[in-house]
Structure formats: structure tokens, C-alpha cells
């Protein structure tokens, strides 16, 4: 349904998307995960036909996003970051406007608007001015706008940002219910959201895809690794290098000042040895424990790899 190949886009000299390829099957919900400025929004803008790519290609429902943009846009619902809306319009006037420009025949407009209002739980505010609505309601009006023409593909840029916990749950349930019938790409910082709603995850970092799999697989991939959290009291500038030198240690990363994450093979327990070593050196052992691997760790690990490589080279 969506095919992205070697997409590249920069703003002036600043590269935003370096080389992104992925594909989404019909009816699938794909989570688009990455830290700030990873290139998530830019990729989504290219797919929605708002920005052209510098090179590479993308097709949505079989239509090329650059040469058949209008055909793509007819089949696509898009919710940009922060849901930009017209504050001086009422919710139903706003949805009517979007129904019109999305080519819904005038006979069906009232019915489609009503359906979108109901789907997004905003029937009670339909006659209110958008400018008077809370952030959560505005976000849902944005979602209603994206859904109004029953698009085959939905692109949602951080749809749950700024919502209260109840609204977040409702929105996630709504997105989940859209899967199967619609193909959805959803970007987020919130990791549990991905494991809750998405069938597959693409993690991007610095404009490149660093991982692509189901949330479960990504977690189990890392399960071959045992992580030990280590915190020391005294300043130890060489500790990172020293820990890395210990036999059996695969990787060491700094999580905070004087906190380290030591990774070893799953079948190797170095806790005892590490503890003795830190105490002997007089660094002052404060805490030492095994870390459970979560999607969050996968995310952190994948998106911090590059900077660590730079660190070890230096």
C-alpha cells in the first residue's frame, strides 16, 4: 500500500532524511519511532505530498507521490503535528469545508460530517468555535478531518500529543480500530503507544532507518543481551574505558553522570566481578542491578549507537 525507496530530503544544507526505505502492507498499522529531528515529520510530509523529496521515490496506493500527487491526496488522510486548524470556524463548518475540498458529493456531506464527529467523540462540541476548544478536542477535530473521506491511507503525526490519559486511550482504541480497513502510519515518541497500537515498528534516527520489525521481535532481539546497571559515587573519568576492557563485556554506555549500562552475553553473569572491581578501585559502588529489556531500551540503544561509535573512535 505504501512503498518508500531511498528517500532523501534536506532543508538547505541541513539533511533531514538521508536514506529511508520501508513498505507498509494494506490494513497494517505502522509505528514510526524516532527521537526529535530524526526525520519522522519530514518523511510524513513527503508521503502526504506537502514536500517533494530531493531523491528517491514513494508510492501510496500505487500512485507516485511526486508525479501523481492529487491521486495520492484523494486517498490519504493526514494529521500534521499539532493539528493546525482554523480557530474562527466551528467544528462542523470546518469539517464541512474539508469534506468539500476532499471531493465528497454535496448530498453526502452532512452524513459524512456526522460520522466523523461520532467516530472521534466530538459530537458535543460540533457547534463550538475551534479556537475555544481545548488541545485535546482540537487534536480530535484534526483526526476527524483526516478521516472524513474514508481514506485508504492515514498518516498521523503524533496524534496523541497533548491529550489527557482518557483521551489518549480513546484515541489509541480509535486508531487500533482503523487497522484492517485503513493503512495507518503513526509517528510517536511514546514507546508503549507503539507496542499497544502498532503491528510493526520502523525506528529512524538521523534520517535513516535503524530498525524495522514487530515490537515483540525488536525486544527479543535484544534479549540475547544482559544489561547491568551500575552507579558509582566518585567521579571516574576512565571508568567507561576500564569497564569496556573487562573480559566478557560487549558494550558500555553512560546513561547519566556516573551511571553506566554494561552489556554482556545473556549466559554470563558479571555482577559479582564488576562489584569487586569497582570497590577495589575505590570508585564507591552505589547501585548494581540487572536491567530488564524493554522497547524503550531498544529505542535508546538503536538511536544512541552512532554517538557511541564516535565516542570510541575519539
Amino acid at each position: 500500500m505504501i512503498e518508500v525507496k531511498n528517500l532523501v530530503r534536506s532543508y538547505g544544507l541541513q539533511p533531514a532524511v538521508r536514506d529511508i526505505s520501508f513498505s507498509v502492507q494494506e490494513g497494517e498499522i505502522l509505528g514510526f519511532l524516532g527521537p526529535n529531528a530524526a526525520g519522522k515529520s519530514t518523511t510524513m510530509k513527503i508521503l502526504a505530498g506537502f514536500l517533494p523529496a530531493n531523491s528517491g521515490s514513494a508510492t501510496v496506493a500505487g500512485f507516485d507521490v511526486s508525479t501523481q500527487s492529487i491521486e495520492v491526496r484523494k486517498r490519504l488522510g493526514y494529521l500534521p503535528e499539532n493539528a493546525p486548524l482554523y480557530p474562527d470556524m466551528t467544528v462542523s463548518d470546518y469539517l464541512k469545508f474539508h469534506a468539500r475540498i476532499k471531493g465528497i458529493p454535496s448530498r453526502q456531506i452532512t452524513q459524512k460530517v456526522q460520522a466523523a464527529l461520532e467516530k472521534c467523540f466530538i459530537v458535543e462540541v460540533k457547534n463550538k468555535l475551534i479556537g475555544k476548544l481545548s488541545k485535546g478536542y482540537r487534536q480530535r477535530v484534526g483526526l476527524a478531518q483526516a478521516l472524513i473521506h474514508d481514506p485508504q491511507v492515514l498518516i498521523l503525526d503524533e496524534p496523541t500529543v497533548g491529550l489527557d490519559p482518557v483521551a489518549i486511550k480513546e484515541t489509541r482504541d480509535l486508531i487500533k480500530s482503523l487497522g484492517g480497513k485503513h493503512t495507518v502510519i503513526l509517528s510517536t515518541h511514546i514507546l508503549p503507544e507503539v507496542s499497544m497500537t502498532c503491528g510493526r515498528v520502523v525506528i529512524i534516527h538521523k534520517g535513516k532507518v535503524v530498525a524495522e520489525d514487530t515490537p515483540e521481535n525488536l525486544t527479543t532481539k535484544l534479549q540475547g543481551v544482559r544489561s547491568i546497571y551500575l552507579e558509582v559515587k566518585n567521579e571516574a573519568p576512565n571508568l567507561l574505558a576500564e569497564l569496556s576492557a573487562i573480559q566478557g563485556v560487549n558494550r558500555v554506555s553512560i546513561t547519566q553522570a556516573q551511571s553506566y549500562l554494561v552489556e554482556t552475553r545473556q549466559d554470563l553473569d558479571l555482577r559479582d566481578e564488576l562489584a569487586r572491581w569497582v570497590v577495589n578501585k575505590g570508585y564507591g559502588l552505589i547501585e548494581l542491578r540487572t536491567e530488564k529489556v524493554s522497547l524503550e531500551d531498544v529505542f535508546v540503544q538503536l538511536t544512541t549507537q552512532e554517538s557511541e561509535e564516535e565516542l570510541t573512535h575519539a
Partner: peptide, 14 residues
């Protein structure tokens, strides 16, 4: 300024 351009230009409008 408000970003609504993004929604207008991603609708099937030339």
C-alpha cells in the same frame, strides 16, 4: 503562520 497551509495543500487541491 498557523500551519493550516499543510492541511490545505495535502487535500486534493491544486
Amino acid at each position: 503562520r498557523t500551519g493550516t497551509m499543510e492541511l490545505l495543500m495535502t487535500a486534493p487541491v491544486t
